[in-house]
């Protein structure tokens, strides 16, 4: 065997990427996600048929109820949680993380490759399901899809960054992520004042509530006090970068058992 074999760091990272993508996609969580999206789709189709003659009501229902409450409020965080929170912690509990950490890929790059894989998969699922929920409403669905796509993209990026950070941090990241998604995100959303500004959903919703949006969505509580779409975009973007950087730093220093 040669003394100086041709090795490529990019190839090694791309192997981490492919392995993560494969292990996350061919998992039980994909089946459960399919069931949940299937249910949501069934209800959407039912509503689209029921509201066929009432265009304005149909758009309002799609945007404010199905997409805002059901999709952004539950499906988006739970899909991100399913893939991101298990990416590192499942390797850890399955005692296979050691194989990744024994390779010559620097730890920050392992983390970054995993993030890229989980993000791609999660974006594929969230945007795919968003499109499938909008399409039954025809042209109005397209308008709604165009408004929601950038919001969902950036919110997914942020959620994946956060839940992957949990995954690198604690062994039972899934439960921590669930507690965050269902308690912090939900509870603080209804609290007046600035506490809610620590959540991803606040910025995602603020973006949707912006005056420039053609959907005319409004907060459900009067004292919601949303920020502008531009601010929301900046915060979500910077938070995503910050969370990934923090995760890379943590993963590169932490000793896993």
């Amino acid at each position: 065997m040669e003394n100086t074999p041709p090795v490529s760091r990019f190839a090694a990272c791309s192997q981490v990427f492919r392995l993560t993508l494969r292990r996350q996609f061919f998992s039980r969580q994909t089946i459960v996600i399919a069931v949940l999206i299937g249910l949501a789709l069934a209800v959407t189709v039912l509503l689209s048929v029921f509201l066929q003659g009432e265009r304005n009501r149909a758009v309002d229902h799609l945007a404010s109820r199905i997409l805002s409450r059901l999709f952004v409020g539950f499906l988006l965080p739970i899909i991100s949680l399913a893939y991101a929170s298990s990416a590192i912690s499942a390797e850890r509990t399955g005692q296979t993380l050691v194989y990744l950490l024994s390779t010559s890929v620097p730890r920050p790059l392992i983390y970054l490759s995993q993030y890229a894989a989980v993000l791609l998969l999660t974006l594929g699922v969230t945007l795919g399901s968003l499109a499938s929920l909008c399409l039954p409403f025809g042209a109005d669905g397209w308008v709604t899809l165009r408004v929601f796509t950038p919001v969902v993209t950036l919110a997914t990026t942020c959620y994946v960054g956060l839940f992957l950070l949990f995954s690198a941090w604690v062994r039972r990241a899934t439960f921590l992520a669930l507690a965050y998604a269902l308690m912090i995100e939900t509870l603080t959303a209804n609290i007046p004042g600035v506490v809610k500004r620590i959540t991803v959903s606040f910025y995602a919703n603020s973006w949707l509530y912006d005056d420039s949006s053609p959907l005319n969505l409004n907060p459900r509580i009067p004292a919601y006090d949303p920020v502008s779409a531009a601010t929301a975009q900046w915060v979500l973007g910077l938070a995503s970068i910050g969370l990934v950087a923090l995760g890379m730093w943590l993963f590169s220093r932490k000793e896993y058992d």
Partner: peptide, 13 residues
């Protein structure tokens, strides 16, 4: 093969 990939080897190598 995956482990070989993780060490940066590609294709035929």
């Amino acid at each position: 093969r995956v482990t070989a990939g993780l060490h940066g080897f590609t294709g035929a190598e």
